[in-house]
Design a protein around this nucleic acid. Structure first.
Lengths: 195, 195
DNA sequence: GCAAAGATTGCACACTACGCAAGGTTTTGA
DNA sequence: TCAAAACCTTGCGTAGTGTGCAATCTTTGC
């Protein structure tokens, strides 16, 4: 790999900046923190800060893990029940996210009060949802069906993180299970006429 | 109503500013438009612009119609099949949105490229989804189920608008029908084991 | 070890967003 | 009807954001 010392440093710096940003944001609210303060905390100049992130909200979000190629591939070529395959896919992705619980928690806090940060994350999720839609299109014939399923899935991740953040003593895994139960139940309600 | 001439003017000005913002945004891309230009186009001072909106992205979004109280009430007290009631609810809301097709189209264009605007709309939709979740909680026992249904519904509106914007010669109503078909189909896929 | 590529930084500058205070308009109610 | 209260608009000042440019330093590949 050509991306050696230089690339490694870059990723480290990017992560340092994110951590500095999140720590300041959690204690003082991101809106009350200046890029100058963040840069100072990360040990770089203000100018360099902007070489890494377009703005402080982007620095707070950082570079969240995308769906991994092998996760997507497993879902595309899966041969089991689609609901089970999709749940497995989400479980795997949640496991990836669980590797950075502290950052996840701080990002969640920022998202609660910062519109711009939400927009940035939303843009990222839009891309992810698109990837997932493409993948699911090969499992179900209809594109709208695939789009709906992709929405269900990414939303479920979001709600699981939200639940995990608010219900103490619940792991990310458990939160996803609870949320997924709601997804399945909601689907049942829409199909089987009730009352 | 105490909100007479003064309040009316306020709403008119707010709308004028939104229109000026959107027209400039569609022709030049919002990022390349300054608040000064928008203010000039709307015939007000820059300072006054900020008395109406916190930033140009908020001006572009404006004040989208919330779910109306009677729409929510109808859904809460509805006694039919929940899927049918929910679809009716969405039809009514889409009809409300259809009253401002030109603005809707321009807002859509801004949302494609502007993260901050997406975040602002997202915050608004978060509130709407919460209202809907509360309402649906009274129809289905489980809160997670209600949350999932509320997500399905608000996402469906978003996808319907997207489809309407990209598929010419399709009305908002028709777009919603197509999207809703996908939602139902997706639910079916999750319930009935396929393959 | 050296040239090319890349990273960091300071400086300058346009733009954003808001507090404040001065002046104008609308509303209220006596 | 008219004066006080409430509200609106605006200019000015200022802290903060984000970027182009050029100088300087570090890493890389040969």
């Amino acid at each position: 790999m050509t991306l050696s010392l230089r690339e490694k440093r870059r990723q480290e710096t990017a992560r340092d900046i994110q951590k500095s940003t999140l720590e300041l944001a959690v204690s003082h609210d991101l809106d009350n923190v200046t890029t100058e303060e963040i840069a100072a905390a990360a040990g770089i100049s203000t100018r360099t800060f902007f070489n890494y992130y377009a703005n402080k909200e982007a620095a707070a979000i950082g570079h969240p893990p995308s769906f991994r190629d092998d996760e997507i591939e497993a879902l595309r070529t899966g041969s089991g029940d689609l609901a089970a395959d999709l749940k497995l896919f989400l479980d795997r992705h949640i496991a990836t996210l669980a590797g950075d619980e502290d950052i996840l928690r701080m990002v969640g806090k920022v998202l609660q009060s910062n519109e711009k940060a939400r927009g940035i994350l939303d843009g990222f999720l839009m891309t992810e949802r698109h990837v997932l839609t493409e993948c699911l299109s090969e499992r179900v014939g209809n594109r709208q069906t695939a789009a709906a399923l992709a929405s269900y899935a990414t939303d479920a991740i979001g709600r699981a993180i939200f639940l995990w953040e608010h219900a103490k003593s619940m792991s990310l895994n458990e939160a996803l299970d609870v949320v997924w139960g709601g997804v399945i139940d909601a689907s049942r309600v829409l199909i089987k006429p009730n009352r």
